[in-house]
Amino acid sequence: MESVNVRLKDVRYMSDTKLTQKDVAAMLNVPASSIAEYEKEGYYVPSNILIKYCQTFNVSADYLLGLTNNLKQPNFEIHELGLSDAALDKLRNRKIYPELLSEIIEHEKFDEMMLDAAVYVDGFADESVQRYNALMQVGRAKLKHANLKSLDAKKDLLALDYVQMDQDYLFSGRMGEALKNILHDIKFHHKDDTSTSDYQNGESDFKNLLISTADDLEKNDNKLTLGQVVRTLFLKMLRIKNSDSNLDRVAKIGVNEDFDNLVNQSPIIEPDDRKRRRKK
Results as ranks from 00 to 15, higher is better:
I104W: 00
K52D: 01
A125D: 12
Y43D: 09
Q130T: 12
D62S: 15
K207C: 14
G173I: 03
D198Q: 11
R92T: 15
Q137P: 09
F76W: 06
L135G: 04
V45F: 01
F124Q: 15
E106A: 13
L262M: 03
E106Q: 10
L28N: 00
Y169L: 12
V250W: 02
S128C: 08
G254T: 07
Y162R: 15
A134L: 07
M237P: 11
L170T: 09
G82P: 07
N256V: 05
D185T: 03
G227V: 06
R131G: 03
M27V: 00
K241Y: 06
K187R: 11
E127M: 10
Y13I: 11
H107N: 05
R274K: 07
D193F: 03
N222C: 07
G123Y: 05
V6C: 04
N208M: 03
D156M: 08
L50F: 01
L100Y: 09
L67I: 15
T225L: 02
L247F: 05
L170K: 10
D23W: 00
F124G: 14
S102K: 12
S245D: 12
L209A: 02
E99N: 15
Y44I: 14
D244C: 04
K154N: 15
S60R: 11
D166H: 01
P267T: 13
D192N: 06
K52E: 00
L170I: 06
D221N: 08
Y38T: 04
D248Y: 00
V250I: 09
F171Y: 08
M113F: 07
F206I: 15
K187Q: 08
Y38M: 01
D168S: 09
Q130E: 08
I269K: 10
R140C: 05
S15W: 00
E112G: 14
V250N: 04
V121H: 05
E41R: 07
V263G: 02
N222H: 10
L8G: 06
N220D: 04
K90V: 11
K223A: 14
L210D: 13
K72Q: 09
K155L: 13
A159N: 06
F259G: 13
D260V: 14
G42Q: 15
N69Q: 13
K280T: 02
H184V: 12
G254V: 07
K9A: 02
D10A: 04
G82V: 03
E112I: 10
F57P: 06
D16E: 02
S84W: 01
L19W: 00
N261E: 02
I49R: 10
F76A: 12
Y120D: 10
G82R: 04
